[in-house]
Design a protein around this nucleic acid. Structure first.
Length: 238
DNA sequence: AGCTGATCATAT
DNA sequence: ATATGATCAGCT
């Protein structure tokens, strides 16, 4: 197993990511002297951590962007059989105690300010080692995207501020949703109710709906396994 | 087939 | 317990 140094520029990062495109996890693991687990039932974060290692992410388990000096966050997107995101994207924990945050100072805004998205085949019928990495792309929210995300964030954090956390379900929020983020349903974290009284609640996380990342994918990697730009149609006469 | 609520591993 | 990385599994 080798350690890849952090990329020194966005260009270098993108070049590394492009070099993964079209290759299987088995090939990439073999080249790195690693073994792909047979499945992810007990290794749910394996793909994301593996891609981090391959690209030289240097902030594992720190509350900083994955590529610290570049200020870039890495997110893998599992794609279903139709080539669309199969899962929502984890963003960050929902702060349930302490001082209220501004949008600009929020975890959601900071995490999503610059993201390298790496699509990976995620259809459960494909054995994990055979899954291909797709075309990565770098993204920052455009003005309309930021307005939409901020509106969801304000709606959700507003409910929490009013003490309505327990009434929030995954159905709230157009693009951003709140769901449990815990080892299990018995795990508890300290929170504060509307009156400021402490209580224990299930830890929650912010997630980006699959519909949101699907839109990003359509615009930035419409053909994720065959390069970032749609190529000419294959000639049917050949 | 898509979504929601629940869960798994690792490091600190 | 918190933060990192997410996917699982059951229900509609």
């Amino acid at each position: 197993m080798s350690t890849v140094p952090p990329p020194r520029s966005e260009t270098e990062l993108l070049e590394r990511a492009a070099a993964l495109s079209g290759r299987t996890l088995r090939d990439l693991a073999a080249a790195a002297g690693r073994i792909v687990p047979p499945d992810q039932r007990r290794m749910k974060g394996w793909v994301g951590e593996f891609i981090e290692d391959l690209l030289g992410a240097d902030a594992r388990s720190l509350s900083e962007p994955d590529f610290r000096t570049l200020g870039i966050e890495l997110k893998t997107i599992p794609l279903n059989a139709r080539g669309r995101p199969a899962e929502s994207t984890w963003v960050c924990i929902v702060p349930l105690a302490g001082d209220p945050e501004s949008w600009e100072g929020s975890g959601v805004c900071r995490k999503l300010s610059r993201v390298l998205w790496v699509p990976v085949e995620g259809d459960r019928s494909i054995p994990l080692p055979a899954r291909r990495v797709g075309s990565a792309f770098l993204w920052s929210p455009g003005p309309a995207e930021e307005i939409a995300l901020r509106a969801d964030w304000e709606e959700l954090t507003g409910m929490i501020a009013l003490g309505d956390l327990e009434s929030i379900t995954a159905r709230h929020g157009r693009w951003l949703q709140i769901r449990p983020k815990a080892a299990n349903a018995r795990a508890l974290t300290r929170s504060t109710d509307a009156g400021g009284a402490p209580l224990d609640t299930l830890p929650r996380g912010f997630y980006l709906r699959a519909a949101f990342t699907a839109a990003l994918l359509r615009r930035h990697a419409p053909d994720p396994y065959n390069g970032p730009r749609p190529g000419p149609d294959p000639d049917p006469s050949k």
